[in-house]
């Protein structure tokens, strides 16, 4: 729709990833994740990590993705430590540092899981960094998702900054009224109440008012003009069917493996 894109199209150059629709990107992330669970060979896993990392690097890298990576790298490190030391299949020592022995089996197991996590982060990061909230919203609506469900998913992203603003105001106001230093866990939890109560009541009050205005403003109207998507996407239908087909195959193989285990 005209007014919506006006500002965006003026400032944003069209990149290669703009011609892939959001749902294809999400399905791709799901496909890569499932594939990584299907593979057990570490070399293949590393290959997948590289593929998803390439996707990410060819688009844009955001701070949020970097945060997610650093957080999970820390967890993967502890995973390697715990599994390397204590995994029940441990038999072959890998390295010994100061009389602490890490075993090959545990470390491999942890690395395998670590690569899967990186694949998830990179492929989701690709989706997030290359689409905007309003692009997702318009696209979902244009492919037939009911508007109230689009609203439900997307309005969170708009509400958060508002709640954050209210939070800052309330924290300042309560500080001005004096809040004692809190040391114990119970005291700390209690100190949340002066902030949380006004914040929650204010937030819910705004929800009530918003639900009233939405109804007054014709939110439920059946004759709503469906917004047209922002970009011309490359064969979205084909991509969806293809990826869904591949995902089904992966799930089928997994199910067959589980069943044949029992047989």
């Amino acid at each position: 729709m005209d007014i919506r894109n006006h500002s965006l199209q003026k400032t944003v150059r069209l990149h290669w990833y703009n011609v892939i629709d959001p749902v294809t990107k999400l399905l791709l992330a799901l496909f890569l994740t499932l594939l990584s669970f299907q593979l057990t060979d570490l070399y293949f896993e590393v290959g997948l990590v590289l593929i998803s990392l390439t996707l990410l690097l060819l688009s844009r890298l955001s701070v949020a993705t970097l945060h997610a990576v650093s957080f999970s790298l820390f967890l993967i490190a502890t995973m390697i430590l715990i599994q390397g030391l204590f995994n029940s299949h441990n038999t072959h020592p890998l390295v010994t540092i100061l009389s602490i022995t890490l075993y090959q089996e545990g470390v491999l197991y942890a690395l395998n899981m670590g690569t899967r996590i990186l694949i998830i982060i990179f492929s989701i990061g690709f989706f997030m960094n290359t689409t905007t909230i309003s692009e997702n919203a318009t696209y979902l609506e244009s492919v037939g998702m009911p508007y109230n469900q689009v609203y439900l998913l997307m309005s969170v992203c708009y509400i958060l900054p508002q709640i954050q603003q209210n939070l800052n105001k309330i924290q300042f106001a309560e500080k001005a009224r004096g809040i004692n230093l809190q040391r114990t866990l119970i005291q700390k939890l209690q100190s949340l109440l002066p902030i949380m109560i006004p914040l929650i009541i204010k937030t819910f009050d705004q929800s009530i008012n918003r639900s009233i205005t939405l109804q007054l403003r014709g939110f439920n109207s059946p004759e709503r003009t469906i917004a047209t998507p922002m970009y011309h996407y490359f064969k979205p239908k084909f991509n969806h069917y293809f990826l869904v087909f591949m995902i089904m195959i992966l799930i089928g193989v997994k199910l067959w493996q589980i069943i044949s285990n029992f047989l």
Binding site: N148, S155, V156, Q162, I163, F204, S211, L214, N220
Partner: peptide, 13 residues
């Protein structure tokens, strides 16, 4: 509609 606006608020909280 009330639930539709309550849910994003709850997520925010």
């Amino acid at each position: 509609v009330a639930t539709t606006t309550l849910i994003p608020a709850a997520v925010g909280i």
